[in-house]
Write a protein that binds this DNA or RNA. Sequence first.
DNA 1: CTCAGATGTTGACATTGATCACATGCAGCA
DNA 2: TGCTGCATGTGATCAATGTCAACATCTGAG
Lengths: 199, 199
Amino acid sequence: MSTSEPTDRYHHGDLRRALVEAALELLLEGGTEALGMRELARRVGVSAAAPYRHFRDKQALIQAVAAAGFALFLEAMEAAKAGIAPEEQLSAMAEAYVQFALRYPRLYKLMFSSELGKFEDKELRRAADAAYESLAVTAAKEDPEAPGEAAISAWAFVHGLSMLLLDEQLLGVSAANAEPLVRKLARRHAQRFGKPRPA
Amino acid sequence: MSTSEPTDRYHHGDLRRALVEAALELLLEGGTEALGMRELARRVGVSAAAPYRHFRDKQALIQAVAAAGFALFLEAMEAAKAGIAPEEQLSAMAEAYVQFALRYPRLYKLMFSSELGKFEDKELRRAADAAYESLAVTAAKEDPEAPGEAAISAWAFVHGLSMLLLDEQLLGVSAANAEPLVRKLARRHAQRFGKPRPA
DNA sequence: CTCAGATGTTGACATTGATCACATGCAGCA
DNA sequence: TGCTGCATGTGATCAATGTCAACATCTGAG
């Protein structure tokens, strides 16, 4: 699936992209701990100093990975509400949200790790905000009287639920058997937070 | 406020406690990055290898810190619902929860960092579960028909909201001006998730 | 009083993030 | 075509970190 196979040319050709790709793999496999500049360089088959031509910092590299993560995430969100009846959209997105977190736990964690300085990197900020918007607009439609609160509430709900599941904080519930619970909770949330009973 | 001032005896006397205390300070000041074994040893005025007599790993030390954090946290939760009318308890706790997260952002983040292996350390696990219980029982009372779901929902809500605030993901809302919003959302949540309108 | 085990120290090793001066090769201009 | 400037990659090196093993020191149980 990799776009670039290792070459032995002096100039790699597309190092930056290759680095982000490899970093993503590394992250998915081994978590934040496994994501090191040197190991990364090794993977891509390049010297240890090379990555610094493309990223000021380890942090900068991580921010790029997170941004890529948010792009993936946004895609999943959009896909989730495509072709779904409006009144079902919110709960469908909620489910998709949690499923994403469960499928890519380490990536998800990184994306919200918060010491990655989300406000400092413009591109990252935009990617994150785009994902937020996708959910927010759907949630807002559910409660036109207080759209802002509805959006925050929905976001907080799915985010919190994801974290709890990832931490296995919910006794007896793990990623494997989470789906029914998630579905039930999503329904419950959408129902109670939906438009306050029209006449 | 420190229990132990630096002595120049060969044996420190209460290194373990001193280490956890110092680690907590270090964490609160500089975040996870600043929390290193060597720096820690330096602070306590002891050699770099000494901490390893009390903690197998850096991870073990971190787990101990997290456990201490959960104790603090539990305390705050219990204090929040003491002497409050039952129907106000849930929203009071929700507020207290978020306030804790906002007051100790880095500690809070560490406590839920999830690669600290919460399930492996028994003491840590118990501390975390105790905190969970404190909120869960209160939330469960709000909706006797589905106590489990009510508990998860409440926990997810406050946890998610805290994370969003810490990440400054909510545009225009920061720790400083978060209080009114938090209060409003807590009320809203308690109201909608409360007992489904008794007759 | 003694001496065994707990607690600290010293010195070392491998690894990491980061930076420097230097090497290389591609692009555009002659 | 051939030259050359600039982006890109290399290797050597530094300081710092987590961790360990061998040695030193203290303290309490008998």
